Computed example of a mutant assay.
Amino acid sequence: MSDEIGGHTIPSNASSLGGTSLASRPAIHLREEPAVYANINPSIDVRLLHTTYLLLTERSVSKVAVLLGLTQPSVSASLKKAREVFADPLLVRSGQKLVLTERGEEVMVSVGLILEGLKNTLNRTSQFDPGAVQSRMRVAAVNCFGAFLIPPLAASIRQKAPGISVDFFAPSEKMDLIDELGAGRVDLVIGNWPAPQQSLKSTTLLHCDIACVVQRSNPLARAGRLTLHTYLDADHVSPTPGSSAFYSPIDGRLSQLGMKRRIAMSVPEYALIPAILAETDLVFTTARPYAEYIIENAPANQLRLIEAPREFDQMNLYLLWHERAHASGANQWLRGVVRSVARRFDQTLHAMPAKAELLAAY
């Protein structure tokens, strides 16, 4: 059985079912601890909690009706009953959309934990077998390391878990990845922010130096290393707009220093950057392995590598996930695959210092 209930993963880390009638318990516990169950509404069942959770996460009666294969009146009736049970509107209209009440936010978290606890209790005896699972997972890759990590990740996943489909994608500028992880619409994030988000689970995959790439005729190409002053005076090309410093390890670091660079051009994908550099005076700042990669794959003598300002320190690559998926067998397995692939790449990266020195002087 997959890690989803009705197509949605439910938040994890539930230690118990709170004494509700959702779990089968020995009769002696009911007699020994009557006070625990005394105030539980007997009309609450798993179907109502599941529907309520989806309504609070999706905030759309019509969408939940489609997800569950029910009619909208049926889902509306469940919402009405949930409002009675929890003595709160839970969802209220704000313009053209529905928003959660404060009580609704509390109920969403609590119900999610209950459902996850129930799911874990039911599945606890079975070990996760990636080769026997049929599911789909989504991984946001917010960095230049995709060229190095995604191909070996794809090979490992296809070899060990051919039934697991994985969508690797670059998130849009407006996407709130914390919300997406919390709602189960994204399973993992591979990001290289200046620091991981404290509200998420995370682990460091690797670290490396930061370098700049310019066209060979650019006057900056003669510099061994850029000073921060020279760097800020230059015009830059970036795969993230200047307004998206949250997703950028470069602009995020500058923001920490109270500074901002001039992004003259932003592009939707990394693949466009080498051609732009070859025809302009723009500066591209990235992880050193990717800087070396695009120089190696550009026409001979077309691009040059320059050391980035010392203030940037190193770039860290993080793997992030939500607490709700921490105990998920599928999520745990995929995290292990990502860590294994990143570890091999990191070992290769730090075993070849001579190559980096050669390219820096090239």
Rank of each mutant, 00 (worst) to 15 (best):
Y231H: 11
Y231N: 03
Y231R: 02
L232N: 04
D233V: 11
D233S: 14
D235G: 03
H236I: 08
P239V: 02
T240W: 01
T240N: 02
P241Q: 02
P241S: 03
G242C: 05
S243E: 03
S243Y: 00
S244F: 01
S244C: 03
A245N: 01
A245H: 03
F246Y: 12
F246K: 02
F246H: 07
F246A: 10
F246E: 13
Y247F: 15
Y247S: 13
S248I: 11
P249K: 08
I250R: 01
D251R: 12
D251S: 12
D251N: 10
D251T: 12
G252E: 06
G252L: 09
G252V: 11
R253M: 05
R253L: 04
R253A: 05
L254T: 00
S255N: 09
Q256M: 11
Q256W: 04
G258Y: 08
M259Q: 15
M259C: 14
M259S: 14
K260V: 13
K260P: 08
K260D: 11
R261L: 06
I263A: 01
I263P: 01
I263R: 00
A264M: 15
A264Q: 14
A264S: 15
A264K: 13
M265Q: 13
S266N: 14
S266P: 09
S266Q: 10
V267W: 00
V267F: 00
P268V: 09
E269T: 09
E269P: 01
E269N: 09
E269W: 05
Y270W: 10
Y270P: 00
A271I: 13
A271S: 13
L272F: 11
P274V: 08
P274N: 10
P274S: 11
A275Q: 15
I276P: 15
L277Q: 11
A278K: 08
T280I: 08
D281R: 06
D281Y: 00
L282Y: 15
L282M: 14
V283I: 15
V283E: 07
F284Y: 15
F284W: 15
F284E: 05
F284R: 04
F284I: 10
A287L: 07
A287Q: 06
A287V: 09
P289L: 07
Y290E: 05
Y290P: 03
I294K: 01
I294A: 04
I294T: 06
I295P: 03
I295D: 04
I295F: 11
I295R: 12
E296D: 06
N297S: 07
N297C: 06
A298N: 10
P299M: 07
P299N: 05
N301R: 14
N301H: 14
Q302H: 12
R304Q: 12
L305V: 08
I306S: 02
I306G: 01
I306V: 13
I306T: 04
E307F: 05
P309W: 03
